[in-house]
Design a binder for these strands. Structure first.
Length: 300
DNA sequence: AAACCATGCAACCGCAGCATC
DNA sequence: TGATGCTGCGGTTGCATGGTT
């Protein structure tokens, strides 16, 4: 048995690239209903996909707050450092890069970073130990010569991972003490002053045709946000911050947690969310400046 | 201009772990 | 307690594009 089996007419599931219409259906459905069970999402949303495919599409492409585009130097350094510590734990690495997906990081690793460190390793073989550290990491000269070897974590890697500084280690709850994508970040990523609520994929020049441009905005959400209304009608209140920066950062407050199973609109209107937080516009703005300093991925 | 190759990215596949019955 | 279903993760593949010959 297991879960109550969702009615599954043995429909042939569509595969391949997603059409704009499919994207729109999925997006609309999740924004309205959330997802409590992925296997029921395609059925209820009228999609001929399997739940797995829907989940992947949402996580990697449609989910609000996704940063897309060129990886910044800082992000690359973070990936390199975390990969050295964690190995191919892409999902864990992604947790430390707000707005990036594990798939995106994995792709970037295989297409670029892996070669980068191999080249560096070759260089360091040619010109023996030096302190030059083009990667900017204090220990980057310790990179294995070939990270493909660490695709399966070696004992060494495992023991290294166990010595990961506390800040990088998940807490008891399986959470990292580094910030995930905060709701505030998620908001402002796509809702900069004067901007509507869109996925960055839509605002960036696409390289491939299959970067669909969904021109339809989530108008309801967009209007909610643009009106400055949030949390069941509460206005953002300046100078009423109840949380320090560190408190905000240490809060387990990421978008996934909020939307899962509830639906975005419910999330936006939810009392629990509203009562728990009083936002300070300036603070949020500054926080995002801090987080994305130098991340001029739009212009690169 | 055409064929070939390299690259980047989206999506699929298979597995492990967990939840439920 | 085993069977079954679901989710999440990492590895891999397939395709579109751009560059090179």
């Amino acid at each position: 048995m297991g879960y109550k089996s969702v009615e599954k007419p043995k429909a042939k599931h569509r595969k391949g690239l997603w059409s704009p219409d499919e994207d729109q259906r999925l997006r609309n459905y999740i924004l309205k209903h959330g997802y409590s069970c992925w296997s029921s999402v395609p059925i209820n949303a009228g999609l001929q996909r399997n739940g797995k495919s829907c989940r992947l599409r949402w996580i990697n492409y449609l989910r609000p707050g996704l940063k897309r585009g060129v990886f910044t130097v800082q992000e690359e350094e973070t990936i390199l450092n975390l990969h050295r510590l964690l190995g191919n734990k892409w999902s864990q690495i992604a947790q430390h890069l707000p707005g990036r997906t594990d798939n995106e990081i994995k792709n970037h690793w295989h297409s670029y970073l892996k070669k980068k460190i191999n080249v560096k390793a070759d260089d360091s073989h040619l010109q023996m130990p030096s302190n030059s550290d083009s990667l900017g990491s204090p220990n980057s000269t310790d990179f294995p010569t070939d990270h493909t070897q660490s695709d399966d974590m070696t004992e060494h890697t495992k023991s290294s991972a166990s010595q990961i500084p506390k800040i990088l280690n998940p807490t008891k709850e399986g959470q990292s003490s580094l910030p995930k994508l905060l709701f505030a970040e998620w908001l402002s990523l796509d809702n900069s002053p004067g901007e509507s609520f869109t996925n960055h994929a839509e605002s960036q020049a696409p390289r491939h045709d299959h970067y669909y441009h969904s021109s339809s905005q989530d108008s309801l959400v967009s209007s909610l946000l643009n009106e400055g209304t949030f949390c069941g009608g509460h206005q953002y209140q300046n100078n009423q911050s109840e949380f320090s920066t560190s408190e905000i950062y240490s809060s387990r407050f990421n978008f996934e947690d909020q939307i899962s199973g509830k639906g975005l609109l419910q999330c936006l209107y939810g009392d629990d969310l509203c009562s728990a937080f009083s936002f300070d516009n300036d603070m949020l703005y500054n926080e995002n400046l801090f987080n994305y300093q130098g991340c001029n991925y739009e212009g690169e």
